[in-house]
Design a protein around this nucleic acid. Structure first.
Lengths: 191, 191
DNA sequence: GTCTATATAACGATAGAC
DNA sequence: GTCTATCGTTATATAGAC
């Protein structure tokens, strides 16, 4: 699946990231990872102590990447609504779901404190980042009504995570888009 | 796990429902189901052709139950906001997640048209049910601004589904509640 | 670092006795 | 209807040669 421009270790990590995204932790076997990476058993157990170790490395990298992607959309100094909209409307591989959020449905990930930590931290970071932006908007009087920045931020993150669920349920990204448009309409300053 | 007030077949179905909720389709083995139900291999394969057959029965029942639970909260003829709020604020086993929504992250469920159908239908039914209620509210002038009922309904369902993700990520129902309150605040008619 | 061989258990199912 | 036996495959490694 990967060219040999990547080291074996690197190919194992990237393969694990893809398989975790597609099939989750429980559904991803060491054998599948090795085949995807074009590596033998020996290689995998040389570079990593086992499946949990490799998964942890993969999950941490995916969490970092998600944070960076979100930050890229959220950065800037425009109106809060615009920054939130930029985040919500950014291009996504909707039908694949969120590579971090999907791990919350994986019992073995949730049960393992180490595997779960990057998931918790990433979603918490996102929620707080959005809360800060919404609070800025509130301070500037950009929104109507009395809103709690943390609660609105939670609703934003939840809409995205739930949008993936709806999209995968219907087999179409349209459901994700509809949810996002609904939330943005509610968030928009109204007459 | 179950008393013998239930038939073996019934115990197998209920056990499957619980395990699917907790561990998903990929993470639920026939053996685990049999042990949970206090039934032997023979019994399971006598009553069902295999894991997919049993899972289909379990998923259909769970989908029906979810629909009934949602309908109970949505029924009535009060203001649309109140009915939506009743649905959003109803008691939930938040940390367990949604027994239907979680199946969208199960690759084997999504890949199988039969297993996936109840999931699709339930979430679509819910979205449409909510859209009808929101539309009623719009028709009666209960909401401010120009809103699309279907989009708002999508945002509502997404907030719930995503709320479960946030709750499981943080290990606390608080994140779910925050998202719900955020959405309700946005939905509330404002000055 | 990578390979092959080997090991224990679980997975998902079938066969046939009772 | 339920039980035990058996089956071929996969999961998750470990051992040791190269």
């Amino acid at each position: 699946m990967y060219t040999h421009l990547m080291s074996t270790s690197e190919r194992l990590i990237e393969s694990t990231r893809e398989l975790l995204w597609e099939r989750g932790y429980v559904g991803t076997s060491p054998k599948a990872i090795q085949q995807h990476a074009g590596a033998g058993q020996g290689s995998m157990y040389h570079h990593f102590t086992g499946k949990p170790d490799l998964a942890l490395t993969a999950i941490r990298r995916t969490a970092q990447e998600m944070q960076a992607t979100a930050e890229a959309a959220l950065a800037g100094d425009g109106p809060a609504y615009d920054r939130v909209a930029a985040y919500l409307l950014r291009e996504r591989d909707v039908l694949r779901g969120c590579p971090v959020g999907r791990l919350t449905m994986d019992p073995d990930v949730i049960a393992d404190e180490e595997l779960r930590a990057p998931v918790t931290e990433t979603l918490e970071w996102l929620r707080e980042r959005l809360a800060g932006i919404v609070q800025e908007g509130l301070d500037r009087g950009e929104f109507s009504g009395t809103l709690d920045a943390g609660e609105v931020a939670s609703a934003i993150v939840a809409t995205v995570q739930g949008g993936y669920v709806l999209a995968r349920a219907t087999g179409s990204p349209a459901a994700f888009d509809a949810g996002v448009r609904g939330l943005l309409a509610l968030l928009a300053p109204r007459a």
